[in-house]
Design a binder for these strands. Structure first.
Lengths: 141, 141
DNA sequence: ATATAACATTAGATATAGTCTAAATTACTT
DNA sequence: AAGTAATTTAGACTATATCTAATGTTATAT
């Protein structure tokens, strides 16, 4: 987690390295837990208590737009974010909504005709089921 | 679009076949356009103007829980729904957020160790890029 | 047929997630 | 050091979805 590396990757994307933006990026790189925006805001505020909710959202949006961070939408819950380090797929728990990494592997593209006039950018796989925490006790919701 | 077939599939899932619930299910089966809850509510209300927003949400939730309908979360936008007829994957447009079907094909599971204590239920592929409508004009957002 | 219990619907209030505004501040460039 | 464009901020606002509790409906048992 080299501070200079983070700074360089922000600047490489044309983003200024502000303390707030740096904090968001650093938190995501040290944390492969796929936090929500609210969780990131809270964590970042424990270090520097002067940062606003709007800024966290702004920065997450900028980072996603710059391709440094990935956003994962989860049905009926807040979106989750992760630093785009090593490529990986995702596992989303049906019960608790947590997002976990699944080792990357290449997925075959569909029959070429199927994508016709669309421009394909990426292709992700989402596995669903119960995470290790939720699996033992199928009970309650 | 056999009315009886819809009735039977609802009852087969232990759901009563109420006019409102039937309308939602029928609309989704006649429509592979992946509408949002708001669009479904509006469409259903044009047929029978007496149905409420809450009921539409309730029924969508019940149908998803029963496994008759699939919910697709889209980053920064309302969720979209489709009847689980033929299996298919999804294409989500980066620009307009529309969801389209991609012909189904089987995706290889990851290395077995990778899923360890989790219980895998399903595995979906999401393609991303620009849809046919948005592709020509990369411009604006 | 009727009672009854379980299920479903409703309007509107509420909750949650995220965006916008406009003024003040800050990081980078020269 | 100064200029300038990007960034931050608080709080209002919007969008999406859920909850509540009263009312209505349907299926089942009698």
């Amino acid at each position: 987690m080299d501070a200079e590396a983070i700074k360089r990757s922000l600047e490489g994307s044309g983003l200024r390295c502000t303390p707030q933006r740096y904090a968001v990026m650093a938190f995501l790189m040290e944390n492969n837990s796929h936090p929500t925006a609210a969780e990131i805001f809270e964590a970042v505020n424990q270090v520097d208590p002067r940062s606003s909710r709007a800024t966290t959202y702004n920065n997450l949006r900028d980072l996603v737009k710059a391709g440094l961070v990935r956003e994962v939408a989860v049905e009926g819950r807040a979106a989750r974010f992760d630093a785009k380090g090593m490529r990986h797929h995702h596992f989303i728990c049906d019960r608790c909504g947590n997002v976990e990494d699944i080792e990357w592997y290449d997925v075959p593209r569909p029959a070429s005709g199927s994508l016709d006039k669309r421009i394909l950018r990426e292709c992700e796989v989402i596995f669903r089921g119960l995470c290790a925490k939720c699996a033992p006790r199928h009970a309650s919701r």
